[in-house]
Amino acid sequence: MATAVEVINLVKRYENNTVIPGLTISVRQGEIFALLGANGAGKTTTLECIEGIRSYHEGDIRVHGRIGVQLQSSSLLENITAIEAYKLFCLWNKSKIDKETLHSFGIMEFRNKQYRTLSTGQKRRLHLAIALINDPDIVILDEPTAGLDVEGRVSLHKEIRKIRDSGKTILMASHDMAEVESLCDRIAILKEGKLAFLGTADELTGSHFGESKISFRVRNQFPEIKLSYSKLDQSERNYFTVTTTEIADALYELLTLLKEMDNEVLDIKIEHASLEERFIEIAKEGR
């Protein structure tokens, strides 16, 4: 798949503090790519370097196409109306006012309201519409749903999916794990400016990374057994939990042993770590 954005060995320092010591990531065309990380991990700095509003010390950034940007903390003059702001950005980008975008983003409903009176959701929608003015190939969204209520998030997620479905690439930073899980094709987790994980949400939460839990209920109690791939805990009389990083091997070993003991499994459940748990784990320790 063709590449939309390439960040190669990016190094960014603030005075003597190196916040990004050599980051390499590439975003594929047409995907929604999320940058995750704790506060200060370097997400916004990386995005701002890509956007061209922040300089960097070493490395290279290649952007293959026009970009549209919605900033994390964006603002406009407080007494400008939504429609005036949209028109101003349109004129400077030599674009026509796209009434369809204004309608689909619901901007027509608040077009004559001044910026300071807009709700957070309305401001986000306005900034997203402005980001799309020059018909960008790549849309960069820095925490697009921060501060929004559930309704606002759902509505904005719908817009983000629509943007992706129109063939654009989306590169976003987020703190919201549910958002990332439901929207993004691939995730990069940054820790102290370094890449701590790169892959899909399934890969992040899947059995081949981190610990998974097998909870099961058996007909008969059994004596203490030693498992090679997992640790067994008894929660109640016939209820047990096995914690493992090797889910397939552990499951095979467990079922074989139970069969040998002629014990019947009445109920079994496998739980992988949630995205949030894995994120916290990686952000704390690295992988």
């Binding site: 509003i53 940007v69 900033l71 964006s74 603002s75 003059l77 400077w92 900034h127 980001a131």
Partner: peptide, 21 residues
């Protein structure tokens, strides 16, 4: 007043990424 609002805050970034000199 409008200049402080524009050049000291987030409006400046919005102008930069939005193509307004």
């Amino acid at each position: 007043i409008p200049l402080v609002e524009l050049y000291s805050g987030d409006i400046r970034k919005a102008y930069q990424v939005g193509g307004i000199p």
